[in-house]
Computed example of a mutant assay.
Amino acid sequence: MDIEFYREYCIKKPGVTESFPFDNNILVFKVMNKMFALCDVDLFTSVNLKCDPERSVQLREQYEGIIPGYHMNKTHWNTIQMDGTIPDKLFLELIDHSYELIVNSLPKKSKEELSNL
């Protein structure tokens, strides 16, 4: 998986925007102004994704390439190492999961706006 495929996959989701709010290297994807994915565009050695806390524990136990979120809330975020140890299919599923967690947590009005996009 390369960064262009990752970027295209994220940005095609409804209501998603991309920005560099922290510096010129950290690309952040948001849905309705809430973060669901971020990575260093120069290195692309890992990606931070939101995750259900129980699933986070299971994934971390099962895959060495999934660790508690670097510089994030360790309960709700995972860092996915982009070293080839995580299957692309699982990585894409985890992006979807992160996006869906944010969408499901949105207020009713924001969900309605999103459904109209």
Rank of each mutant, 00 (worst) to 15 (best):
H71S: 11
K30R: 15
A37S: 15
E93I: 05
G69T: 04
H97M: 01
K34T: 04
D42L: 10
E4Q: 14
D40E: 07
S115N: 12
F36H: 10
I86D: 08
I66H: 12
K12Q: 11
Y63C: 11
L101Y: 10
P87F: 03
K89F: 01
F22M: 02
Q58I: 11
L27A: 05
L114N: 07
V31R: 09
F91C: 10
S46W: 05
E64K: 13
E8T: 09
L94I: 03
S115V: 00
M35L: 15
P87N: 11
L94E: 02
S110R: 14
V47E: 07
L117R: 09
S115M: 13
P68W: 03
Q81P: 00
D96C: 06
E113T: 07
P107F: 07
R60S: 11
L27K: 11
Y99H: 12
E93T: 05
M1T: 04
I95M: 12
W77Y: 10
V31M: 06
I11W: 02
N48K: 02
H97I: 02
R60G: 08
P87G: 12
T75N: 13
A37H: 09
M72I: 02
G65T: 04
N73Y: 09
N25Y: 08
L94V: 01
F44M: 14
E8K: 14
E93W: 05
M35A: 08
F5M: 04
D96H: 02
K108C: 08
D88K: 15
L117N: 11
D42K: 14
M82N: 14
D96V: 01
Q81R: 15
N24M: 01
N78Q: 08
F29R: 05
I86W: 08
I80K: 08
C39Y: 13
I67C: 06
Y6L: 12
C10P: 07
N48R: 05
C51K: 00
N25V: 01
I26T: 15
E4K: 12
F91P: 09
V57P: 06
P21G: 05
R60L: 00
M35T: 13
L43A: 13
M35Y: 11
K34G: 06
K109Q: 12
L117A: 00
K50P: 10
T17G: 09
D42N: 15
M32H: 02
K74D: 09
S110A: 15
M35H: 09
S56R: 12
P87E: 14
P14R: 11
I11V: 07
I26K: 07
N116F: 03
Y70A: 03
P107M: 07
K50L: 09
D23T: 04
K13Y: 00
E100M: 06
V57K: 14
I66C: 08
N116Q: 14
M1G: 08
C51V: 14
E54G: 06
